[in-house]
């Protein structure tokens, strides 16, 4: 199964990409270290959320059972998971040099899925704010609004980055520079999907259990 020399985490371009494959080593490793650092931020926000459960932190305000919508969480999960797959298809097409269109089409689909995800998430938040369940209501809601929108902000940053990359593909084609950036954006995107596993499990599913 050693199809190609692995130089860094995530999908490798492979030696048939020449210099870009060599340059990828330090760049992608560096980005990977950054993601691990970011993971600590998320981990601490998760831990803060866990410590801010219960009547004391809810301060008489609404709790998970009154606020969370399982159906919406399920849709958001599917959207993100599918976008991970479509990004993977784009990465594979890039690695196997299938041309520009097979890379761009799944990327556009990924962007669409990402934006739809954000739409659902914002809709959920709006519903909560309309019930008076904003971060100003209780410590528990502060922890919720510190954690889940943090992931949403990351997805927003990912979408902006993806738009910039689509523009760069239009300007430069699949140049080495563009390919190296897409590799890192791919890592970012898959990483956010892993964070989402934590969010739907710890926040939504555990919150709605029992």
């Amino acid at each position: 199964m050693t199809q190609f020399e692995r130089k860094h985490p995530g999908l490798n371009l492979g030696s048939h990409h020449g210099a870009a494959h060599d340059q990828a080593e330090a760049l992608v490793f560096g980005f990977w270290v950054f993601l691990m650092s970011d993971l600590i931020i998320f981990g601490l926000m998760f831990a803060t959320y866990i410590t801010m459960q219960g009547p004391m932190a809810e301060a008489g305000g609404p709790g998970p059972a009154q606020l969370y919508d399982l159906r919406s969480a399920w849709i958001q999960t599917l959207l993100l998971l599918t976008s991970s797959l479509t990004f993977g298809l784009a990465s594979l097409a890039m690695r196997h040099k299938h041309g520009v269109a097979p890379v761009v089409v799944p990327l556009v689909v990924t962007l669409g899925l990402g934006l739809t995800f954000l739409g659902f998430e914002l809709h959920d938040f709006q519903g909560m704010l309309a019930q008076g369940a904003g971060p100003g209501r209780s410590g528990f809601l502060s922890a919720f609004f510190g954690l889940v929108p943090l992931h949403g902000l990351h997805v927003t940053a990912g979408c902006i980055w993806l738009m910039v990359m689509l523009a760069q593909i239009a300007v430069f084609g699949l140049s080495d520079m563009v390919k190296l950036r897409l590799l890192r954006l791919g890592l970012f995107w898959h990483f956010l999907d892993i964070i989402w596993i934590g969010i739907f499990s710890i926040v939504y599913l555990a919150g709605l259990t029992g």
Partner: peptide, 26 residues
């Protein structure tokens, strides 16, 4: 990262009426 979390959440408390560290409201 823990410093980033601490400063950012303190900022949320001070700017956006969050209640991570306030005396009241949990």
């Amino acid at each position: 990262p823990p410093l980033t979390v601490a400063t950012a959440t303190l900022a949320l408390d001070r700017y956006l009426d969050f209640h991570f560290y306030t005396n009241d409201l949990g």
